[in-house]
Design a protein around this nucleic acid. Structure first.
Lengths: 231, 231
DNA sequence: AATTTACGATACGGACCCGTCTCGTATCGT
DNA sequence: ACGATACGAGACGGGTCCGTATCGTAAATT
Protein backbone atom coordinates (compact mmCIF):
# COMPACT_ATOMS: atom_id res chain seq x y z
CA UNK A 1 0.00 0.00 0.00
CA UNK A 2 2.10 2.82 -1.17
CA UNK A 3 0.40 5.78 -2.66
CA UNK A 4 -0.19 7.37 0.66
CA UNK A 5 -0.56 11.05 0.51
CA UNK A 6 -2.55 11.36 -2.58
CA UNK A 7 -1.54 9.91 -5.89
CA UNK A 8 0.41 12.51 -7.70
CA UNK A 9 0.07 12.74 -11.43
CA UNK A 10 2.54 11.08 -13.65
CA UNK A 11 3.71 13.14 -16.54
CA UNK A 12 5.57 16.38 -16.28
CA UNK A 13 7.13 18.82 -18.65
CA UNK A 14 6.08 22.31 -19.48
CA UNK A 15 3.24 21.06 -21.63
CA UNK A 16 4.36 23.29 -24.43
CA UNK A 17 1.60 23.02 -26.96
CA UNK A 18 3.76 24.50 -29.64
CA UNK A 19 2.71 27.99 -28.70
CA UNK A 20 4.84 30.84 -27.57
CA UNK A 21 7.58 29.06 -25.75
CA UNK A 22 10.68 28.06 -27.55
CA UNK A 23 10.43 30.60 -30.28
CA UNK A 24 13.74 29.19 -31.36
CA UNK A 25 12.86 27.89 -34.76
CA UNK A 26 10.54 25.15 -33.59
CA UNK A 27 8.05 23.78 -36.05
CA UNK A 28 5.14 26.22 -35.94
CA UNK A 29 3.02 23.89 -37.97
CA UNK A 30 -0.23 25.22 -36.50
CA UNK A 31 -0.11 28.92 -35.55
CA UNK A 32 -3.14 28.41 -33.30
CA UNK A 33 -6.05 30.63 -34.01
CA UNK A 34 -6.84 32.47 -30.81
CA UNK A 35 -4.92 34.71 -28.51
CA UNK A 36 -1.41 33.41 -27.98
CA UNK A 37 -0.11 32.54 -24.57
CA UNK A 38 1.67 35.25 -22.72
CA UNK A 39 5.37 34.64 -22.49
CA UNK A 40 5.47 37.17 -19.70
CA UNK A 41 3.02 35.15 -17.63
CA UNK A 42 5.16 32.05 -17.90
CA UNK A 43 8.26 33.90 -16.84
CA UNK A 44 6.41 35.56 -14.01
CA UNK A 45 5.30 32.18 -12.71
CA UNK A 46 8.75 30.67 -12.73
CA UNK A 47 10.22 33.83 -11.26
CA UNK A 48 7.63 33.79 -8.51
CA UNK A 49 8.52 30.26 -7.52
CA UNK A 50 12.17 31.13 -7.42
CA UNK A 51 11.49 34.23 -5.39
CA UNK A 52 9.42 32.27 -2.92
CA UNK A 53 12.24 29.80 -2.60
CA UNK A 54 14.69 32.56 -1.87
CA UNK A 55 12.38 33.94 0.75
CA UNK A 56 12.57 30.65 2.54
CA UNK A 57 9.13 29.31 1.79
CA UNK A 58 9.01 25.64 2.62
CA UNK A 59 7.84 23.13 0.09
CA UNK A 60 4.69 22.63 2.12
CA UNK A 61 3.87 26.31 1.98
CA UNK A 62 4.50 26.44 -1.74
CA UNK A 63 0.94 26.09 -2.94
CA UNK A 64 -0.30 26.82 -6.40
CA UNK A 65 -2.58 29.50 -5.08
CA UNK A 66 0.34 31.24 -3.43
CA UNK A 67 2.44 30.94 -6.54
CA UNK A 68 -0.31 32.39 -8.65
CA UNK A 69 -0.80 35.28 -6.27
CA UNK A 70 2.93 35.96 -6.09
CA UNK A 71 3.13 35.94 -9.86
CA UNK A 72 0.05 38.11 -10.29
CA UNK A 73 -1.52 35.41 -12.37
CA UNK A 74 -4.66 33.34 -12.32
CA UNK A 75 -4.49 29.75 -11.27
CA UNK A 76 -5.86 28.68 -14.63
CA UNK A 77 -2.88 30.28 -16.32
CA UNK A 78 -0.63 27.95 -14.39
CA UNK A 79 -2.71 24.88 -15.08
CA UNK A 80 -2.88 25.79 -18.73
CA UNK A 81 0.89 25.33 -18.89
CA UNK A 82 1.63 22.57 -16.43
CA UNK A 83 -0.68 19.66 -15.75
CA UNK A 84 -0.16 19.85 -12.01
CA UNK A 85 1.97 21.29 -9.27
CA UNK A 86 4.56 18.59 -9.52
CA UNK A 87 5.23 19.32 -13.17
CA UNK A 88 5.65 22.99 -12.42
CA UNK A 89 8.15 22.34 -9.68
CA UNK A 90 9.98 19.83 -11.81
CA UNK A 91 10.29 22.44 -14.49
CA UNK A 92 11.49 25.11 -12.10
CA UNK A 93 14.03 22.81 -10.57
CA UNK A 94 15.15 21.78 -14.01
CA UNK A 95 16.06 25.34 -14.92
CA UNK A 96 17.11 26.23 -11.39
CA UNK A 97 20.84 26.14 -11.68
CA UNK A 98 22.91 26.58 -14.72
CA UNK A 99 25.56 23.99 -15.18
CA UNK A 100 28.70 24.49 -13.14
CA UNK A 101 31.48 26.50 -14.67
CA UNK A 102 33.41 24.27 -17.00
CA UNK A 103 36.66 24.89 -15.12
CA UNK A 104 39.36 25.64 -17.63
CA UNK A 105 41.44 22.65 -18.35
CA UNK A 106 44.64 24.62 -18.43
CA UNK A 107 44.34 25.45 -14.78
CA UNK A 108 46.21 23.34 -12.30
CA UNK A 109 44.40 20.62 -10.49
CA UNK A 110 44.72 22.30 -7.14
CA UNK A 111 43.20 25.47 -8.50
CA UNK A 112 40.40 23.51 -10.10
CA UNK A 113 39.60 21.85 -6.83
CA UNK A 114 39.65 25.19 -5.07
CA UNK A 115 37.34 26.64 -7.68
CA UNK A 116 34.93 23.77 -7.24
CA UNK A 117 34.88 24.00 -3.48
CA UNK A 118 34.52 27.73 -3.67
CA UNK A 119 31.61 27.30 -6.03
CA UNK A 120 29.88 25.17 -3.43
CA UNK A 121 30.73 27.71 -0.76
CA UNK A 122 29.23 30.56 -2.73
CA UNK A 123 26.18 28.53 -3.54
CA UNK A 124 25.81 27.68 0.09
CA UNK A 125 25.44 31.40 0.66
CA UNK A 126 22.70 31.64 -1.93
CA UNK A 127 19.36 30.97 -0.39
CA UNK A 128 17.87 29.56 -3.52
CA UNK A 129 20.46 26.85 -3.73
CA UNK A 130 20.09 26.01 -0.09
CA UNK A 131 16.38 25.71 -0.51
CA UNK A 132 16.73 23.33 -3.40
CA UNK A 133 19.30 21.21 -1.68
CA UNK A 134 17.39 20.96 1.52
CA UNK A 135 14.20 20.26 -0.30
CA UNK A 136 15.92 17.55 -2.25
CA UNK A 137 17.33 16.00 0.87
CA UNK A 138 14.27 16.11 3.00
CA UNK A 139 11.04 17.12 1.46
CA UNK A 140 11.38 15.38 -1.82
CA UNK A 141 11.29 12.09 -0.07
CA UNK A 142 8.25 10.31 -1.36
CA UNK A 143 8.33 12.58 -4.38
CA UNK A 144 10.57 10.48 -6.55
CA UNK A 145 10.17 12.32 -9.80
CA UNK A 146 11.32 15.64 -8.43
CA UNK A 147 14.11 14.10 -6.45
CA UNK A 148 15.29 12.15 -9.46
CA UNK A 149 15.33 15.24 -11.59
CA UNK A 150 17.22 17.19 -8.99
CA UNK A 151 19.81 14.48 -8.90
CA UNK A 152 20.13 14.40 -12.64
CA UNK A 153 20.25 18.12 -13.15
CA UNK A 154 22.09 19.43 -10.14
CA UNK A 155 23.95 16.70 -8.35
CA UNK A 156 25.15 14.56 -11.22
CA UNK A 157 26.82 17.28 -13.28
CA UNK A 158 28.74 18.49 -10.28
CA UNK A 159 29.68 15.02 -9.28
CA UNK A 160 30.84 14.35 -12.78
CA UNK A 161 32.84 17.53 -12.84
CA UNK A 162 34.46 16.64 -9.56
CA UNK A 163 35.31 13.19 -10.83
CA UNK A 164 36.85 14.63 -13.92
CA UNK A 165 39.07 17.05 -12.06
CA UNK A 166 40.13 14.39 -9.65
CA UNK A 167 40.82 11.92 -12.42
CA UNK A 168 43.02 14.51 -14.01
CA UNK A 169 44.76 15.04 -10.71
CA UNK A 170 45.48 11.36 -10.44
CA UNK A 171 46.74 11.24 -14.00
CA UNK A 172 49.03 14.19 -13.42
CA UNK A 173 50.42 12.65 -10.28
CA UNK A 174 49.05 15.32 -8.01
CA UNK A 175 46.52 13.05 -6.32
CA UNK A 176 47.19 9.64 -4.93
CA UNK A 177 46.29 6.75 -7.17
CA UNK A 178 45.76 4.28 -4.36
CA UNK A 179 42.54 5.88 -3.18
CA UNK A 180 39.22 5.22 -4.82
CA UNK A 181 38.03 8.07 -7.02
CA UNK A 182 34.74 8.21 -5.16
CA UNK A 183 36.49 8.51 -1.85
CA UNK A 184 38.78 11.21 -3.15
CA UNK A 185 35.74 13.14 -4.32
CA UNK A 186 34.07 12.80 -0.98
CA UNK A 187 37.21 13.96 0.76
CA UNK A 188 37.33 17.11 -1.30
CA UNK A 189 33.72 18.18 -1.18
CA UNK A 190 32.85 16.70 2.20
CA UNK A 191 34.22 19.43 4.44
CA UNK A 192 32.56 22.32 2.66
CA UNK A 193 29.27 20.48 2.44
CA UNK A 194 29.27 19.69 6.11
CA UNK A 195 29.80 23.32 6.89
CA UNK A 196 27.37 24.67 4.33
CA UNK A 197 24.54 22.23 4.62
CA UNK A 198 24.70 20.05 7.65
CA UNK A 199 25.53 22.49 10.35
CA UNK A 200 24.14 25.32 8.36
CA UNK A 201 25.81 27.87 10.53
CA UNK A 202 29.53 27.69 10.05
CA UNK A 203 31.10 30.76 8.57
CA UNK A 204 31.13 30.70 4.79
CA UNK A 205 32.15 34.25 4.08
CA UNK A 206 35.87 33.71 4.27
CA UNK A 207 37.18 34.00 0.74
CA UNK A 208 40.19 31.87 1.55
CA UNK A 209 38.14 29.03 2.96
CA UNK A 210 38.15 26.91 -0.17
CA UNK A 211 41.88 27.16 -0.58
CA UNK A 212 42.38 26.33 3.04
CA UNK A 213 40.14 23.29 2.83
CA UNK A 214 41.65 21.92 -0.32
CA UNK A 215 45.16 22.29 0.97
CA UNK A 216 44.22 20.63 4.22
CA UNK A 217 42.70 17.70 2.40
CA UNK A 218 45.62 17.42 0.04
CA UNK A 219 48.18 17.52 2.78
CA UNK A 220 46.22 15.41 5.21
CA UNK A 221 45.03 15.84 8.74
CA UNK A 222 47.72 13.69 10.26
CA UNK A 223 51.11 14.93 11.28
CA UNK A 224 53.57 14.20 8.53
CA UNK A 225 56.36 12.02 9.70
CA UNK A 226 59.11 13.61 7.61
CA UNK A 227 57.82 17.01 6.54
CA UNK A 228 58.29 19.64 9.19
CA UNK A 229 55.47 21.63 10.71
CA UNK A 230 54.74 24.41 8.32
CA UNK A 231 54.82 27.25 10.78
CA UNK B 1 9.87 36.38 16.85
CA UNK B 2 9.83 34.66 13.59
CA UNK B 3 6.93 32.30 13.82
CA UNK B 4 6.45 31.89 10.13
CA UNK B 5 4.39 28.97 9.10
CA UNK B 6 1.38 29.33 11.25
CA UNK B 7 1.69 29.98 14.92
CA UNK B 8 2.25 26.64 16.45
CA UNK B 9 1.58 26.14 20.09
CA UNK B 10 4.30 27.01 22.50
CA UNK B 11 4.87 24.42 25.13
CA UNK B 12 5.92 20.89 24.51
CA UNK B 13 6.80 17.94 26.63
CA UNK B 14 4.83 14.82 27.25
CA UNK B 15 2.33 16.65 29.39
CA UNK B 16 2.81 14.12 32.12
CA UNK B 17 0.12 14.96 34.57
CA UNK B 18 1.72 12.86 37.23
CA UNK B 19 -0.07 9.78 36.02
CA UNK B 20 1.41 6.57 34.85
CA UNK B 21 4.60 7.72 33.27
CA UNK B 22 7.73 7.93 35.28
CA UNK B 23 6.79 5.35 37.84
CA UNK B 24 10.28 5.90 39.10
CA UNK B 25 9.57 7.10 42.59
CA UNK B 26 8.20 10.47 41.56
CA UNK B 27 6.00 12.28 44.01
CA UNK B 28 2.60 10.65 43.59
CA UNK B 29 0.96 13.26 45.69
CA UNK B 30 -2.39 12.75 43.95
CA UNK B 31 -2.95 9.21 42.70
CA UNK B 32 -5.79 10.46 40.47
CA UNK B 33 -9.13 8.89 41.02
CA UNK B 34 -10.21 7.41 37.73
CA UNK B 35 -8.75 4.89 35.36
CA UNK B 36 -5.03 5.43 34.96
CA UNK B 37 -3.50 6.15 31.63
CA UNK B 38 -2.29 3.19 29.69
CA UNK B 39 1.45 3.00 29.53
CA UNK B 40 1.08 0.64 26.61
CA UNK B 41 -0.82 3.25 24.61
CA UNK B 42 1.92 5.79 25.07
CA UNK B 43 4.57 3.35 23.97
CA UNK B 44 2.46 2.27 21.03
CA UNK B 45 2.14 5.87 19.89
CA UNK B 46 5.83 6.59 20.03
CA UNK B 47 6.61 3.26 18.44
CA UNK B 48 4.15 3.99 15.66
CA UNK B 49 5.81 7.28 14.85
CA UNK B 50 9.19 5.63 14.76
CA UNK B 51 7.88 2.85 12.59
CA UNK B 52 6.33 5.31 10.18
CA UNK B 53 9.65 7.10 10.01
CA UNK B 54 11.43 3.88 9.18
CA UNK B 55 8.93 3.17 6.47
CA UNK B 56 9.87 6.43 4.83
CA UNK B 57 6.80 8.46 5.59
CA UNK B 58 7.51 12.09 4.94
CA UNK B 59 6.89 14.68 7.58
CA UNK B 60 3.96 15.98 5.57
CA UNK B 61 2.30 12.59 5.51
CA UNK B 62 2.82 12.13 9.21
CA UNK B 63 -0.60 13.19 10.38
CA UNK B 64 -2.06 12.59 13.78
CA UNK B 65 -4.82 10.52 12.30
CA UNK B 66 -2.31 8.29 10.60
CA UNK B 67 -0.24 7.97 13.73
CA UNK B 68 -3.29 7.06 15.75
CA UNK B 69 -4.34 4.46 13.23
CA UNK B 70 -0.86 3.00 13.06
CA UNK B 71 -0.73 2.80 16.82
CA UNK B 72 -4.19 1.31 17.10
CA UNK B 73 -5.19 4.21 19.28
CA UNK B 74 -7.82 6.89 19.31
CA UNK B 75 -6.87 10.41 18.44
CA UNK B 76 -8.03 11.60 21.82
CA UNK B 77 -5.51 9.32 23.46
CA UNK B 78 -2.77 11.21 21.70
CA UNK B 79 -4.15 14.62 22.48
CA UNK B 80 -4.60 13.61 26.10
CA UNK B 81 -0.81 13.24 26.33
CA UNK B 82 0.54 15.89 24.03
CA UNK B 83 -1.04 19.26 23.44
CA UNK B 84 -0.51 19.13 19.68
CA UNK B 85 1.32 17.37 16.92
CA UNK B 86 4.44 19.42 17.32
CA UNK B 87 4.85 18.43 20.95
CA UNK B 88 4.48 14.78 20.04
CA UNK B 89 7.13 14.97 17.36
CA UNK B 90 9.42 16.95 19.61
CA UNK B 91 9.09 14.23 22.19
CA UNK B 92 9.74 11.46 19.71
CA UNK B 93 12.78 13.21 18.31
CA UNK B 94 14.02 13.84 21.81
CA UNK B 95 14.11 10.17 22.60
CA UNK B 96 15.05 9.18 19.07
CA UNK B 97 18.72 8.47 19.43
CA UNK B 98 20.62 7.54 22.46
CA UNK B 99 23.80 9.44 23.00
CA UNK B 100 26.77 8.28 21.00
CA UNK B 101 29.03 5.69 22.49
CA UNK B 102 31.41 7.41 24.87
CA UNK B 103 34.42 6.08 22.98
CA UNK B 104 36.90 4.70 25.46
CA UNK B 105 39.59 7.14 26.20
CA UNK B 106 42.29 4.54 26.31
CA UNK B 107 41.84 3.82 22.64
CA UNK B 108 44.18 5.46 20.19
CA UNK B 109 43.02 8.56 18.40
CA UNK B 110 42.94 6.87 15.05
CA UNK B 111 40.74 4.11 16.39
CA UNK B 112 38.48 6.65 18.00
CA UNK B 113 38.06 8.46 14.72
CA UNK B 114 37.35 5.21 12.96
CA UNK B 115 34.77 4.31 15.57
CA UNK B 116 33.08 7.66 15.13
CA UNK B 117 32.99 7.45 11.37
CA UNK B 118 31.78 3.88 11.55
CA UNK B 119 29.04 4.97 13.90
CA UNK B 120 27.86 7.43 11.31
CA UNK B 121 28.12 4.78 8.64
CA UNK B 122 26.02 2.32 10.57
CA UNK B 123 23.49 5.00 11.37
CA UNK B 124 23.35 5.91 7.74
CA UNK B 125 22.17 2.40 7.14
CA UNK B 126 19.40 2.78 9.67
CA UNK B 127 16.35 4.23 8.05
CA UNK B 128 15.14 5.89 11.17
CA UNK B 129 18.27 7.94 11.49
CA UNK B 130 18.18 8.90 7.86
CA UNK B 131 14.63 10.06 8.23
CA UNK B 132 15.47 12.22 11.17
CA UNK B 133 18.48 13.73 9.53
CA UNK B 134 16.72 14.47 6.31
CA UNK B 135 13.75 15.86 8.12
CA UNK B 136 16.03 18.06 10.13
CA UNK B 137 17.77 19.27 7.04
CA UNK B 138 14.76 19.96 4.93
CA UNK B 139 11.37 19.68 6.45
CA UNK B 140 12.07 21.23 9.79
CA UNK B 141 12.74 24.50 8.10
CA UNK B 142 10.15 26.85 9.42
CA UNK B 143 9.66 24.57 12.39
CA UNK B 144 12.26 26.08 14.64
CA UNK B 145 11.41 24.25 17.82
CA UNK B 146 11.83 20.82 16.35
CA UNK B 147 14.92 21.75 14.44
CA UNK B 148 16.47 23.32 17.49
CA UNK B 149 15.80 20.24 19.55
CA UNK B 150 17.26 17.99 16.91
CA UNK B 151 20.38 20.06 16.88
CA UNK B 152 20.70 20.00 20.62
CA UNK B 153 19.97 16.34 21.05
CA UNK B 154 21.50 14.71 18.01
CA UNK B 155 23.95 16.98 16.28
CA UNK B 156 25.58 18.77 19.18
CA UNK B 157 26.60 15.72 21.21
CA UNK B 158 28.21 14.14 18.20
CA UNK B 159 29.91 17.31 17.20
CA UNK B 160 31.20 17.71 20.71
CA UNK B 161 32.44 14.16 20.75
CA UNK B 162 34.22 14.68 17.49
CA UNK B 163 35.82 17.85 18.75
CA UNK B 164 37.02 16.09 21.85
CA UNK B 165 38.61 13.24 19.97
CA UNK B 166 40.26 15.60 17.57
CA UNK B 167 41.47 17.85 20.35
CA UNK B 168 43.04 14.81 21.94
CA UNK B 169 44.60 13.92 18.63
CA UNK B 170 46.16 17.33 18.36
CA UNK B 171 47.40 17.16 21.92
CA UNK B 172 48.97 13.76 21.34
CA UNK B 173 50.67 14.96 18.22
CA UNK B 174 48.73 12.67 15.92
CA UNK B 175 46.79 15.46 14.24
CA UNK B 176 48.23 18.63 12.86
CA UNK B 177 47.99 21.63 15.10
CA UNK B 178 48.05 24.16 12.31
CA UNK B 179 44.57 23.33 11.11
CA UNK B 180 41.48 24.74 12.74
CA UNK B 181 39.68 22.24 14.93
CA UNK B 182 36.44 22.84 13.06
CA UNK B 183 38.08 22.17 9.77
CA UNK B 184 39.68 19.01 11.06
CA UNK B 185 36.29 17.83 12.22
CA UNK B 186 34.74 18.56 8.89
CA UNK B 187 37.53 16.72 7.14
CA UNK B 188 36.93 13.61 9.19
CA UNK B 189 33.16 13.39 9.08
CA UNK B 190 32.66 15.03 5.69
CA UNK B 191 33.37 12.06 3.45
CA UNK B 192 31.09 9.64 5.23
CA UNK B 193 28.32 12.18 5.46
CA UNK B 194 28.51 12.94 1.78
CA UNK B 195 28.19 9.29 0.99
CA UNK B 196 25.50 8.53 3.54
CA UNK B 197 23.30 11.57 3.27
CA UNK B 198 23.96 13.65 0.22
CA UNK B 199 24.24 11.04 -2.45
CA UNK B 200 22.24 8.59 -0.46
CA UNK B 201 23.29 5.75 -2.65
CA UNK B 202 26.95 5.11 -2.18
CA UNK B 203 27.80 1.75 -0.69
CA UNK B 204 27.83 1.80 3.07
CA UNK B 205 28.01 -1.90 3.78
CA UNK B 206 31.76 -2.21 3.60
CA UNK B 207 32.94 -2.80 7.13
CA UNK B 208 36.35 -1.41 6.34
CA UNK B 209 35.01 1.82 4.93
CA UNK B 210 35.49 3.88 8.06
CA UNK B 211 39.07 2.79 8.47
CA UNK B 212 39.75 3.50 4.84
CA UNK B 213 38.25 6.95 5.06
CA UNK B 214 40.03 7.95 8.22
CA UNK B 215 43.37 6.79 6.94
CA UNK B 216 42.82 8.62 3.69
CA UNK B 217 42.02 11.83 5.52
CA UNK B 218 44.93 11.44 7.89
CA UNK B 219 47.38 10.76 5.13
CA UNK B 220 45.95 13.26 2.71
CA UNK B 221 44.71 13.09 -0.81
CA UNK B 222 47.82 14.55 -2.31
CA UNK B 223 50.84 12.57 -3.32
CA UNK B 224 53.39 12.68 -0.55
CA UNK B 225 56.65 14.12 -1.73
CA UNK B 226 58.95 11.96 0.39
CA UNK B 227 56.97 9.11 1.88
CA UNK B 228 56.45 6.12 -0.38
CA UNK B 229 53.09 4.79 -1.44
CA UNK B 230 51.65 3.09 1.56
CA UNK B 231 50.80 -0.24 0.00
C1' DA C 1 -17.09 41.43 -37.69
C1' DA C 2 -16.96 36.73 -36.08
C1' DT C 3 -14.46 33.29 -33.91
C1' DT C 4 -11.15 31.33 -31.13
C1' DT C 5 -8.12 31.17 -27.57
C1' DA C 6 -5.79 33.26 -23.33
C1' DC C 7 -6.25 36.16 -19.47
C1' DG C 8 -7.24 37.33 -14.15
C1' DA C 9 -10.42 36.37 -10.71
C1' DT C 10 -12.95 33.46 -8.26
C1' DA C 11 -16.25 29.81 -7.04
C1' DC C 12 -16.57 24.90 -6.54
C1' DG C 13 -16.12 19.85 -5.14
C1' DG C 14 -13.46 16.56 -3.08
C1' DA C 15 -9.86 15.46 -0.10
C1' DC C 16 -7.07 15.87 3.87
C1' DC C 17 -5.74 17.79 8.25
C1' DC C 18 -5.97 19.63 13.13
C1' DG C 19 -7.89 19.85 17.45
C1' DT C 20 -12.29 19.30 20.04
C1' DC C 21 -16.10 16.78 21.33
C1' DT C 22 -19.35 13.00 21.92
C1' DC C 23 -20.40 8.32 22.16
C1' DG C 24 -20.49 3.65 24.69
C1' DT C 25 -17.25 0.88 27.27
C1' DA C 26 -13.49 -0.34 30.47
C1' DT C 27 -10.90 0.29 34.67
C1' DC C 28 -9.47 2.57 38.43
C1' DG C 29 -10.25 4.63 43.35
C1' DT C 30 -13.58 5.16 47.36
C1' DA D 1 -22.05 0.28 44.11
C1' DC D 2 -20.60 4.70 42.33
C1' DG D 3 -18.24 8.51 40.57
C1' DA D 4 -14.16 9.64 37.95
C1' DT D 5 -11.14 9.02 34.44
C1' DA D 6 -9.19 6.65 30.28
C1' DC D 7 -10.09 4.04 26.29
C1' DG D 8 -11.19 3.29 20.85
C1' DA D 9 -13.97 5.04 17.34
C1' DG D 10 -15.50 8.54 14.95
C1' DA D 11 -18.31 12.95 14.03
C1' DC D 12 -17.61 17.80 13.69
C1' DG D 13 -16.14 22.66 12.48
C1' DG D 14 -12.81 25.38 10.48
C1' DG D 15 -9.07 25.49 7.56
C1' DT D 16 -5.92 24.62 3.38
C1' DC D 17 -5.00 22.57 -0.73
C1' DC D 18 -5.56 20.70 -5.58
C1' DG D 19 -7.46 20.76 -9.93
C1' DT D 20 -11.65 22.16 -12.67
C1' DA D 21 -15.10 25.24 -14.19
C1' DT D 22 -17.18 29.64 -14.97
C1' DC D 23 -17.25 34.42 -15.26
C1' DG D 24 -16.39 38.85 -18.27
C1' DT D 25 -12.55 40.71 -20.89
C1' DA D 26 -8.43 40.93 -24.07
C1' DA D 27 -5.85 39.69 -28.13
C1' DA D 28 -5.06 37.08 -31.98
C1' DT D 29 -6.78 34.68 -36.73
C1' DT D 30 -10.07 34.41 -40.60
Amino acid sequence: MVDQGGARGGQNGPMQTETTTSTSGGGPCAPRRGRPRSEAAEQAIVAAVERLMEEGTGLAELSVERIAAAAGVGKATIYRRWPNKEALLVDVVARLEEQPEPVLNGVGVRDSLIAMVDDIRRRGLAKRSRWALKAALGQLEGWPELRQLYKERIIQPRRELAREIIRRGVAEGVLRDDIDIELLTEMVIGPILVRAVLWGEGPLDDDGLAEQMVDAVLTGAGVRPSGGESH
